[in-house]
């Protein structure tokens, strides 16, 4: 996922002459991983598509200000995470009483979603994940589903590795317990 010679690539993204082709490369390399990252947060395909485009717009506009203090891909994941969370926050404000109510509705809607392929247990798993606190949910999705390193997750979420490990451990414990309950019924 990490591009070779990242600093040169960033320079070509900042340079007006090479910007277009470099952006195309960036899009080709990152559209899928960023889409899946967003999709796991917002759950719905149309919403994920909308947020993905907004994310790339932000990346394109913001690349000139990128100082290279973090890896390019963690910077982009940070933008994607913030865009997704902002999208959910706005939607909750507009259409729901609380973000919990919204997440429950979104998870329940997956039953009728043509782009959700999971069975009943997977649907239940998604409901459990959706009801986790934001940080636990994000760290679980990034570690468990995307196999990301704790150091990278720490850069993206701006939380210490120790705290992330603790959040992940709690999230796993909660999910295990709830899945066990469902499977015994």
């Amino acid at each position: 996922m990490i591009l070779e010679n990242e600093s040169n690539f960033i320079e070509s993204l900042k340079n007006k002459k090479t910007q277009n082709s470099a952006f195309e490369t960036l899009l080709t390399n990152y559209k899928q991983p960023l889409y899946w990252h967003i999709r796991k947060i917002v759950l719905n395909h149309d919403a994920a598509d909308d947020v993905l485009q907004d994310t790339f717009v932000k990346i394109f506009k913001g690349i000139s200000k990128f100082k290279g203090e973090s890896k390019l891909y963690t910077w982009m994941y940070k933008i994607a995470t913030n865009e997704s969370l902002n999208f959910l926050k706005l939607r909750a404000k507009k259409y729901f009483q609380s973000s919990e109510e919204m997440m429950n509705t979104l998870a329940n809607n997956l039953k009728e979603d043509p782009y959700f392929d999971g069975d009943m247990v997977q649907l239940e798993l998604q409901k459990i994940i959706s009801n986790l606190p934001d940080k636990q949910k994000l760290v679980f999705q990034m570690k468990y589903e995307q196999n990301m390193k704790f150091n990278d997750i720490s850069e993206i979420l701006g939380t210490s590795v120790g705290a992330l490990k603790a959040s992940y451990h709690i999230a796993v414990k909660k999910i295990k317990e709830k899945i066990k309950k469902i499977q015994t019924f």
Binding site: E24, L27, H45, Y115, D117, G118, L125, E145, K176, I179
Partner: peptide
């Protein structure tokens, strides 16, 4: 982790050719 073994991670899908439709 037992959940991963039993449940897998691929629950979501996308419309056909969706990723090809995304361009600069």
């Amino acid at each position: 982790f037992f959940i991963k073994k039993e449940l897998g991670v691929k629950r979501f899908s996308v419309p056909t050719n969706y990723f090809n439709s995304i361009d600069k």
